[in-house]
Simulated scan of single mutants.
Amino acid sequence: MEPKEQPGPREDELFEHHKFVASPGQEPLRVDKFLMNFIENATRSKIQQAAKDGHIWVNDAEVKQNYRVKAGDEVKVMFEHPPYEFLLTPEEIPLDTVYEDDSLLVVNKPAGMVVHPGHGNYSGTLINALLYHIDHLPANQNERPGLVHRIDKDTSGLLVIAKTETAMTHLAKQFFDKTTEREYIALVWGDVQQDSGTITGHIDRNPKNRLQMQVFPEGDHGKEAVTHYKVLERLGYVTLVSCRLETGRTHQIRVHLKYIGHTLFNDARYGGDKILKGTTFTKYRQFVENAFKILPRQALHAKTLGFIHPATGEPMRFNSDLPEDMASCIEKWRHYAKHRS
């Protein structure tokens, strides 16, 4: 099967991520199997999907996954976004530094800032800022400089950054061993019935919506996830809660709270940007819409971060105040709840 001809401009829109030239002794081999031999951590299903999406090219023309690579063929993997290493550009972006020494840095990330570059977010990230302020950050297992953990774009709060290889290894082990302290403050829809509790349930991608995560209570998919919560304040149709993470899965708090019927306030990805509780009165609808404007993101803040210092062995514990948008929204609900009762 010969490569299918494609118009030139299509290639100009793509970025080359991998290029391999088949050796003179290469026996005919399906391109998906060929690439499996060269790309570390690649799965055959991902390679086949890339081919279906038109991202596998041989001799400058798009091919399907069953194309057989021959001696001398030039095989490329092309994507719409630049390779990750091209995105690691230092940018002069201010950092809200809570603590810094020779081993590590603790920053208070604002809502709206992406932690690391990726599809659709090629600049303005925390990593771009860190590379400007710090030389020679160590890379984690995903080749991301300094990152030990991360929080979502529209979640605010504390992150620890490793400045040395020793710090990276030591801190990563603490997160893996679940010995760190991580407390988040969340505003959720509804009146949470129990004053405190623990939410368990494996978390994995939602098979019907790949942008969402989902709880699999039987544990047949995903990874174990454990969230401990405590009610801080009941505000009528919403509740302010503290969440302590035992594990750190993608969207864990957002997914676990939705799972027990209490979606984060204004969490658009999980439906929290709709009026989920309350009355049908026009004035109430206007009140909630105004609250959405005050807090135009999910109501989640990484408030407390604790760990053992990788060099000194001393316990470290940091706290951050609620950002203005979240504090103002909570105060608005307090005022509403007071005058409603």
Rank of each mutant, 00 (worst) to 15 (best):
V69F: 02
D73Y: 02
M326S: 09
H116R: 10
R269N: 08
L130M: 03
K46H: 13
S23W: 01
H55V: 00
M213E: 13
N140V: 05
T164V: 08
P296N: 06
D60L: 13
E2I: 04
R317Y: 03
P3G: 14
E92P: 00
N206D: 15
T179G: 05
S242A: 15
L87D: 11
D195F: 02
Y67S: 07
L305G: 02
E40F: 03
K46P: 00
Q252F: 07
L137D: 09
R182A: 13
Q193Y: 00
I199Q: 08
A129F: 07
Y270G: 10
V69A: 02
L87P: 06
Q298I: 10
T250Q: 12
N209R: 09
Q194E: 15
H221R: 15
D73L: 04
Q49V: 05
L14S: 15
F20N: 01
P24K: 04
Y259M: 02
R205E: 00
Q212K: 13
Q174E: 15
P82D: 02
L130K: 03
L35Q: 08
T164H: 10
K33R: 15
A167E: 03
D60I: 02
L158E: 13
L322K: 07
R68G: 00
Q286M: 04
F265L: 09
G219E: 07
D32C: 05
R205S: 12
G118L: 10
K208N: 06
L95G: 12
A22L: 02
D135N: 11
L295A: 04
P310N: 08
E246K: 11
E91S: 04
G197Y: 03
K33F: 07
A42V: 14
E233W: 08
Y284K: 10
D135W: 04
L158C: 12
G112I: 08
L159T: 04
E331R: 13
I161V: 15
E224H: 00
H116V: 06
R30G: 12
K258I: 02
Q65I: 02
K223L: 13
K70C: 04
L187Y: 11
E183S: 03
W189Q: 08
R10L: 11
